[in-house]
């Protein structure tokens, strides 16, 4: 049975990789199996984890779970055309609660913390910073300032303001370049993982 599973996994892996050549029947089959099985898997997981695990078995005295279940029931009202509009209520709740929750979270982490960490003595406390640290401090300060200017939408990017915004976009692009290289390396590990499966688990060429 284990060998059969490895052969099926290898067949499907090769099918997905065959997309690199062009769209073909093998890829279509693998894609349909992948999409269908994963959709079914997630349905079962969400049902057993949430409806059964959290609500049916583990609800206890937690009234919040009843509120969640009630909102979930309202969502099902979509199935009844006459009262389908009720399903907008839980959606409004989710969108509103998300916006409110993240307003405070993001304001704390993306605004306050960022500003706190950017405002620092550029030359070090008591002017004790090394040249390396000074350059680092100045890069952080200039990068944050000019980046923020780039994302200022109420003024045309012209003159000194435009120049500063251009510096900001340079900083962003340099950051993206570094991030690109770093992420490509991590994607290589995914490829290596699949090749390791094909040549190791399946073909047995890697011991």
């Amino acid at each position: 049975m284990e060998h059969f599973a490895i052969w099926v996994a290898a067949f499907l892996t090769m099918g997905i990789i065959s997309f690199l050549y062009k769209d073909n029947a093998w890829y279509k089959l693998s894609e349909a199996i992948f999409v269908g099985i994963s959709a079914g898997y997630w349905f079962v997981t969400l049902f057993w984890d949430n409806i059964y695990g959290k609500f049916w078995v583990g609800r206890g005295d937690d009234a919040m779970l009843y509120i969640g279940a009630f909102l979930g029931l309202l969502m099902l009202m979509r199935l009844v055309p006459k009262v389908g509009w009720i399903s907008r209520w839980p959606l409004a709740f989710i969108v509103g609660a998300t916006a409110g929750f993240y307003l405070i979270n993001y304001f704390s982490s993306n605004v306050m913390r960022q500003v706190e960490d950017t405002i620092m003595p550029l030359l070090g406390t008591d002017y004790s910073a090394t040249t390396y640290d000074m350059i680092g401090n100045i890069v952080i300060a200039v990068g944050t300032f000019s980046g923020l200017v780039y994302f200022f939408f109420s003024k045309e990017h012209k003159g000194v303001f435009g120049g500063t915004a251009k510096v900001g976009i340079f900083f962003l692009m340099i950051t993206f370049g570094a991030s690109f290289g770093y992420t490509v390396m991590s994607r290589m590990s995914l490829l290596i993982g699949r090749l390791d499966f094909l040549f190791g688990d399946w073909l047995g060429m890697i011991k």
Partner: peptide
């Protein structure tokens, strides 16, 4: 942006630890 300019000047010249205003 204004806070960044003011804060960087105050802290660089050791006048006031301005960043504490943003401490969370």
């Amino acid at each position: 942006l204004i806070a960044l300019i003011v804060g960087l000047l105050l802290e660089t010249f050791g006048i006031w630890n301005f960043s504490t205003l943003f401490s969370v």
